[in-house]
C-alpha cells in the first residue's frame, strides 16, 4: 500500500513538472505521422496559440510545414496512413526560447544517409543569404529534373534566417535518430 502511494506520488510529481514545462515553454509537442488530418489540427493550434502579426505567423507556419514535410518524406519509420499509403513518423517540438521560437524535429534515418545530410547542412550554413538563394535556384532545377536535391533544407534555412543544427544518435539496426533544430526570431 505504501509502495503504491510512493509510486503515485512520483507519477504526480512527474506529471506536474511535465505539465509546467508544457505550459510555460512548449507550443507544440507531437510524435507520430504528419498526415494532412494531423497537420490540420496542428495548424489550427498554431493559428490560435501564436500571438503575433500575420507575417510572423505565416513565417512560423511555413517553417512548421517544411519541417513536417521533411519528416514525412525522409523518416525511415513508416506508418500506414488512413488512405492506405504510408507516411514517415517522427517528433516535432516547437518552444519558446527568449526572443526566438525554437523548432526541433527528430526522426530515424539510415546510417548511410547521414554523411550527405551533414555535407548539405554544412554547405547551407556556410552560405550568406544571396549565395543561399543562388544555391536554391540550382536545386530547384535539379528537382525539376527529378534529381536528388536539398531544396527543402534550403527553404528551411531561408525561412528561419538561422543556422541549421543536427545531431545524430545511434539507434541500432543501421539507423540513427537525427535531431534537427533551427530558430526564428519573434521580431522577424
Amino acid at each position: 500500500m505504501s509502495d503504491n502511494s510512493v509510486n503515485i506520488e512520483s507519477k504526480a510529481e512527474f506529471l506536474e513538472d511535465f505539465y509546467e514545462m508544457l505550459s510555460k515553454e512548449v507550443i507544440i509537442a507531437y510524435r507520430g505521422t504528419f498526415e494532412k488530418s494531423v497537420l490540420g489540427v496542428l495548424a489550427q493550434n498554431i493559428e490560435t496559440t501564436i500571438d503575433s502579426d500575420t507575417v510572423l505567423k505565416r513565417k512560423f507556419f511555413k517553417l512548421f510545414l517544411e519541417l513536417a514535410q521533411n519528416i514525412s518524406d525522409h523518416s525511415v519509420e513508416l506508418v500506414k496512413t488512413a488512405s492506405d499509403g504510408s507516411s514517415g513518423s517522427g517528433l516535432l517540438i516547437i518552444k519558446h526560447k527568449g526572443e526566438n521560437y525554437v523548432f526541433i524535429t527528430g526522426n530515424l534515418i539510415e546510417n548511410k544517409d547521414l554523411e550527405s545530410i551533414n555535407k548539405s547542412i554544412e554547405h547551407i550554413n556556410s552560405l550568406n543569404r544571396d549565395q543561399l538563394r543562388e544555391f536554391k535556384r540550382k536545386q530547384i532545377e535539379l528537382s525539376e529534373k527529378g534529381e536528388k536535391n536539398c531544396f527543402g533544407l534550403i527553404q528551411i534555412a531561408l525561412i528561419s534566417g538561422h543556422h541549421l543544427e543536427i545531431k545524430a544518435i545511434e539507434a541500432g539496426n543501421n539507423q540513427k535518430f537525427l535531431i534537427f533544430s533551427t530558430e526564428i526570431s519573434k521580431d522577424k
Binding site: R58, F61, E66, Q69, I140, S143, E144, F151, Q155
Partner: peptide
C-alpha cells in the same frame, strides 16, 4: 499565393 511548398514549386515554374 503566400506559401508554395517544395513539391508545388516545380508546377508553378
Amino acid at each position: 499565393l503566400s506559401y508554395v511548398n517544395t513539391s508545388s514549386s516545380k508546377h508553378i515554374l
